[in-house]
């Protein structure tokens, strides 16, 4: 599904190398977690894959199925099936959540040559999916993320994910700012979307989220490289010993 080869990335405006050769493969149906200390390049990886400005790829490739991601606009990557759940979802005053969702769903359908959803069909689907995430009609009507609590914003991200039905989901520190109940709700939402033809890349600092969203593979990232990969037990090791041992082992 997602294939990253020898990816080197620097900041566009600065001579600062952030990613120093990432190799990663997430097959369909699997959940991979990336853990690592602050500044290791985890968020940069998610931004580069989804096409945010400000980064320059100096070497390497990234493919989603047949698609050469690095050669595409952000909206093309989305239509091809990539989804990034933001660490800090953006507030957009004056644009209704529903309008935003419908615009996004139909833009992707149009880009893929599919028929757009009618207002009625869209409403039916969004209501059903919103209900599972305990998102009420009021939240759907409000401007995008405006006045939402931290938990509501993250649930709104998962609702978008559920509506857009991507092939590959990247979750960038989705657990940040969530209390225990919210984390459970968000995780349930993600788990409901797990399927044999969908891959997940879950970026997190802490093992806690991985109690809820059980990964198949855990990667440890440090200083722009993946220094260790293993099973779910690797996350537990981090939880107990911190990153220090792993970093020393890599050095």
């Amino acid at each position: 599904m997602l294939k990253i080869k020898d990816l080197h990335v620097k900041l566009e405006d600065e001579d600062k190398q952030i990613l120093k050769g990432i190799d990663l493969e997430v097959p369909a149906g699997e959940v991979h977690a990336i853990m690592g200390p602050n500044g290791s390049g985890k968020s940069t990886l998610s931004y580069v894959l989804s096409g945010r400005d400000g980064y320059e790829v100096t070497e390497g490739t990234a493919h989603l199925g047949e698609h050469d991601l690095l050669d595409m606009e952000p909206e093309e990557r989305a239509a091809a099936g990539l989804f990034l759940a933001f660490q800090y979802p953006v507030e957009i005053p004056g644009v209704g959540n529903m309008t935003f969702l419908r615009t996004a769903v139909n833009a992707q359908r149009k880009a893929r040559g599919e028929e757009e959803l009618s207002a009625g069909d869209f409403l039916k689907i969004v209501r059903a999916k919103a209900k599972d995430l305990k998102i009420d009609a009021e939240m759907l009507k409000r401007p995008v993320n405006v006045g939402f609590s931290g938990g509501e914003k993250k649930r709104n991200e998962i609702l978008q994910m559920a509506m857009l039905e991507p092939k590959m989901c990247i979750l960038d520190e989705t657990d940040s700012g969530l209390d225990v109940d919210a984390m459970k709700l968000v995780s349930d939402g993600v788990n409901a979307l797990r399927s044999p033809d969908r891959g997940f890349l879950v970026i997190t600092h802490y093992q806690r989220l991985l109690d809820h969203i059980k990964p198949d593979v855990v990667h440890i990232m440090a200083d722009g490289r993946i220094i260790k990969s293993g099973g779910p037990e690797l996350a537990l090791e981090v939880e107990t010993n911190g990153y220090a041992d792993l970093l020393e082992g890599a050095a």
Partner: peptide, 30 residues
């Protein structure tokens, strides 16, 4: 235009032109 907001919309599949229009609407809404 707020580049972060523009990227957010585009990352959801909204083409740049439409995303810009949405942010223009957002700005004028007040």
């Amino acid at each position: 235009i707020d580049e972060t907001a523009l990227f957010y919309l585009r990352s959801r599949g909204v083409p740049k032109r439409v995303a810009t229009d949405l942010l223009v609407l957002s700005f004028l809404a007040e």
